[in-house]
Amino acid sequence: MDTTGTAVTKVADVSPDRYIWALDTAPDGVGYGGTYPGGRVFSYDPTTGTQRDYGVAVPGEQYVRSIAVDETTIYAGVGSHAHLIAIDRATGAKRVEGLVLAECVEKLGLVQDQGAVEEFGSA
Score class of each variant (00 low, 15 high):
His83Trp: 15
Tyr32Ala: 06
Thr3Met: 12
Val69Met: 07
Ile67Arg: 00
Ser66Lys: 02
Val105Gln: 10
Thr48Asn: 03
Thr91Lys: 08
Gly98Leu: 05
Ala116Cys: 00
Arg40Glu: 09
Gly98Ile: 05
Ala86Glu: 07
Ser43Glu: 01
Glu106Ala: 10
Asp28Glu: 05
Val117Glu: 03
Arg95Asp: 06
Val41Ser: 08
Tyr19Trp: 13
Ile67Gly: 01
Leu110Met: 12
Thr72Asn: 15
Thr25Tyr: 00
Arg95His: 05
Asp113Arg: 14
Tyr36Asn: 11
Tyr54Arg: 11
Ser122Ala: 09
Thr48His: 02
Asp53Ala: 07
Pro46Gly: 05
Glu103Gln: 15
Gly79Thr: 06
Ser15Lys: 14
Asp28Ser: 09
Asp24Ile: 00
Gly60Arg: 04
Phe42Glu: 05
Val100Glu: 14
Gly121Phe: 14
Val56Ile: 15
Gly60Val: 04
Gly29Arg: 09
Ala26Cys: 00
Thr25His: 00
Trp21Tyr: 13
Asp13Trp: 05
Ile20Arg: 00
Leu23Arg: 00
Val64Phe: 05
Ser122Trp: 15
Val30Gln: 04
Ile87Thr: 08
Val41Arg: 11
Thr47Met: 10
Trp21Cys: 02
Thr48Ile: 07
Pro46Met: 03
Ala116Met: 12
Val105Ser: 11
Val8Lys: 15
Ala68Asn: 03
Ala86Asn: 02
Val78Pro: 04
Asp28Ala: 06
Asp70Val: 01
Asp28Gly: 04
Gly92Ser: 10
Gly92Glu: 08
Ala93Asn: 11
Asp88Met: 05
Ala7Asp: 13
Ser15Met: 07
Thr91Asp: 04
Glu118Asp: 11
Thr73Ile: 10
Arg95Tyr: 03
Ala86Arg: 10
Pro46Val: 01
Tyr63Leu: 09
Leu110Ile: 02
Thr91Pro: 05
Val58Leu: 05
Ala7Met: 04
Gln62Cys: 02
Gly115Ser: 11
Gly121Asp: 14
Gly121Ile: 06
Tyr54Leu: 03
Gly92Asp: 07
Ala57Ser: 13
Val8Thr: 15
Ile20Gln: 03
Leu110Val: 08
Phe42Gly: 09
Arg95Val: 03
Asp24Thr: 00
Gly5Thr: 09
Ala116Glu: 03
Glu71Asn: 13
Arg18Glu: 11
Ala82Gln: 11
Gly33Phe: 09
His83Arg: 15
Thr9Ile: 09
Val56Phe: 08
Lys94Cys: 10
Ala57Pro: 12
Arg40Val: 06
Asp17Gly: 03
Gly33Ser: 09
Met1Cys: 03
Glu71Phe: 01
Tyr32Ser: 03
Pro59Arg: 11
Gln51Gly: 04
Ile85His: 07
Arg65Tyr: 15
Asp17Val: 04
Val14Gln: 08
Thr91Ile: 03
Thr4Phe: 14
Glu118Gly: 01
Tyr54Met: 07
Asp88Glu: 06
Val78Arg: 05
His83Phe: 13
Thr3Ile: 14
Ala22Cys: 12
Gly121Trp: 14
Cys104Val: 15
Pro37Ala: 08
Ala86Pro: 04
Asp88His: 10
Gly29Glu: 06
Gln51Ile: 06
Ala76Glu: 06
Ser43Gly: 08
His83Ala: 01
Glu61Leu: 10
Gly79Asn: 07
Ile20Ser: 08
Val69Leu: 05
